[in-house]
Simulated scan of single mutants.
Amino acid sequence: MDGQLRLGDRWLSFDAEKTLAARRGFVWQPNVHSGLGLGFSGADFSVDGTGGQRFALAGLVPIVRSSGEAIDRSSAGRFLAESVWLPTSFLPMMGAEWDGIDDRRARVTLPTVEESLTVTVDGQGAVESIETLRLDGDTGEMRPFGAIVKRERTVNGFTIPSRVEVGWGFGTDAYEPFFRAKLREASFH
């Protein structure tokens, strides 16, 4: 994927690879470009309930090292939201439990995450948005979190989001997007 990540008031471009495994977690490995010749790279992850972040400036100088219970819980919320890129994780045979809300929204709960995810579809069944409550690691508060799905595409028979905008305060007047991404390619194993 590639896109933009907001840090403070600046939007920085990135390219990244993501690995998702149903019921296990994710590893996101971006290369973030500052435009000043100094970028940073590393990983943001949640694997088997343990979350963390490890980033270094120019691949050498550590700038972010985070872990602990709050990061574990926040990363689990991110894993829940990003599972939309791995539709098989939402199958009942994988432990997912679904509840209908109305004719356009349903709530899904995964066995490894405390919170549930609300999925909203349009009249043709395309995913419009996803939202959940997620622990904000900066404030320690549970906050609305979600994504607007701007475009989908089908890869190996799976229809997944191909362009998204993600932010805190989702569905409120305080919505703050901080991530925009476009899926370049995907594979399923």
Rank of each mutant, 00 (worst) to 15 (best):
160 I>R: 09
140 G>L: 00
63 I>F: 01
66 S>W: 01
150 K>W: 10
12 L>S: 10
30 P>L: 05
69 E>M: 08
151 R>S: 14
158 F>G: 00
182 K>E: 15
19 T>D: 10
121 V>Q: 09
168 W>H: 06
98 W>H: 14
52 G>C: 09
64 V>K: 04
74 S>Y: 00
32 V>P: 03
41 S>I: 09
115 E>Q: 15
44 D>W: 01
116 S>A: 15
79 F>V: 06
158 F>P: 01
173 D>M: 11
172 T>R: 03
105 R>D: 00
169 G>L: 02
1 M>D: 12
88 T>V: 13
85 W>L: 13
84 V>W: 03
128 E>P: 01
116 S>C: 10
138 D>G: 05
110 L>N: 04
20 L>D: 07
120 T>I: 05
4 Q>Y: 15
100 G>D: 13
172 T>M: 03
60 L>V: 15
128 E>W: 07
63 I>P: 09
127 V>K: 02
150 K>Q: 12
79 F>W: 14
129 S>A: 13
53 Q>I: 14
53 Q>H: 06
29 Q>G: 07
173 D>L: 12
142 M>V: 05
135 L>K: 04
14 F>Q: 05
165 E>N: 08
115 E>Y: 02
137 G>F: 03
183 L>M: 14
10 R>Q: 12
94 M>G: 06
125 G>T: 01
19 T>Y: 05
153 R>C: 12
86 L>D: 02
2 D>M: 09
57 L>P: 11
90 F>H: 12
27 V>I: 13
80 L>G: 00
47 V>G: 03
149 V>M: 03
53 Q>K: 10
20 L>M: 12
73 R>F: 00
92 P>E: 08
147 A>M: 10
92 P>A: 01
28 W>I: 06
141 E>H: 04
183 L>H: 07
177 P>C: 13
47 V>Q: 14
54 R>N: 12
148 I>Q: 08
24 R>E: 14
139 T>A: 03
90 F>W: 11
49 G>F: 05
91 L>M: 10
132 T>C: 03
20 L>F: 12
21 A>W: 06
68 G>K: 07
102 D>L: 08
186 A>I: 07
111 P>W: 04
